[in-house]
Design a protein around this nucleic acid. Structure first.
Lengths: 204, 204
DNA sequence: TCGTCAAGTCAGCATCCGCTTACATACCGA
DNA sequence: TCGGTATGTAAGCGGATGCTGACTTGACGA
């Protein structure tokens, strides 16, 4: 929670560390409370700096949201799908990503993808990120981008994403029982079954 | 879209019709844009009446949200699960409810369940509605509320709800392709498979 | 030691939001 | 016909929000 960046920001004058801390605090707020409900004063207070720095570094609240989206887009693309080669591996990685500890940032990144900002530019990035993520996931299930006849695979991959988004939403934002307080082990079993149906054609 | 209630409101003085029109407009706004992003001035403008009527009829913005939740709670409980007796029937009803025409109110009702209001009372109603809906769904899958050993059934029912919520979210609020413009027929197949895994123990 | 510039703060402006109060208008029974 | 009540409107208040411009503080090289 209070890690290196926070210390650096508190102790002194490191613009890059301050920017990183602002992005992380913003992502937490945006993901859990939504764009409009989050105020720039809250974010600045979370980091412990003055509000005006947000406008200095990110021009506007929209700019900060866009920075969050861009970073989430990068991390999702690189960390979640690229190293995986088989459908089974993708499934395990997806489950791990979504069921991380509530304090971890991974589920929040997924959740952020659902939050519209009202800003046209940021929303386009969000949509593109989700569609890119869909193709990555479908690709790992043996789908080739050049083959239009296998479009159902794309659709099923997106249904898998929808499932994970729904689970993350119910667990973090809505806090609905029993799924909110279920352990990762309890959820991994059924989720694995569902994802196998959607992502693994060669399932048993 | 412009149906009886709107006409009545525009043409005259019918308090009940005005209340219904306000609730319907509010539900549309709350579901698609979230609680904070929706303003009472917008809702009043949608119906074509003065803003003060919202406070007169529903006391506050929170009160209007609560009215939306209560009506959604009722309709979900009665229309979606009660008439169904077998898991297969429940599954078909759930799919039909979520994949209705985008102008229909049914998907919006589901979506509304995800939107936290920031108000403690309205959020409690929302959480209770979701948990009640979970038990209804689990009950239709052969789960008995008195049997604590079958708790995984409850969890799996909630995962089914999470899946449907995710799909509705991506289709309406996020508008992500290809799931946003997919037809109900294209989606029903994979969704039926997923829901069978989660809700039907006696699946083939 | 001092000048320079980046990093951060402070106070305030314009706007919007939810809500309230006072007022106007249409219905309806006596 | 007329007065009372229900329905709807107009205007504005207090507060919060995003953002801005002027100011202060600290680091660092000559």
């Amino acid at each position: 929670m209070t890690d290196a960046d926070d210390e650096i920001v508190r102790s002194g004058r490191d613009a890059e560390a301050t920017k990183r801390a602002l992005v992380r605090a913003a992502r937490r707020r945006f993901a859990t409370e939504g764009y409009r409900a989050t105020t720039v004063r809250q974010i600045a207070a979370d980091v412990g700096v003055n509000v005006a720095l947000i406008n200095r570094y990110f021009v506007s609240k929209d700019g900060l949201f866009e920075a969050c989206m861009l970073r989430t887009s990068d991390e999702l693309a690189t960390r979640s799908t690229v190293p995986a080669t088989t459908p089974a591996e993708v499934i395990e990685r997806l489950i791990a990503h979504a069921l991380n500890a509530p304090n971890g940032d991974d589920p929040l990144q997924l959740l952020l993808l659902l939050r519209s900002s009202g800003d046209e530019n940021a929303d386009r990035i969000r949509r593109r990120t989700l569609e890119h993520f869909t193709r990555k996931l479908a690709g790992a299930s043996g789908w080739s981008p050049d083959d239009p006849t296998t479009e159902p695979v794309l659709l099923k991959a997106q249904l898998a994403i929808a499932t994970m988004l729904g689970v993350v939403m119910l667990r973090t934002s809505a806090a609905v029982e029993p799924v909110a307080s279920a352990t990762a082990e309890e959820l991994a079993g059924p989720l694995r079954e569902v994802l196998r149906v959607l992502l693994d054609d060669r399932r048993p």
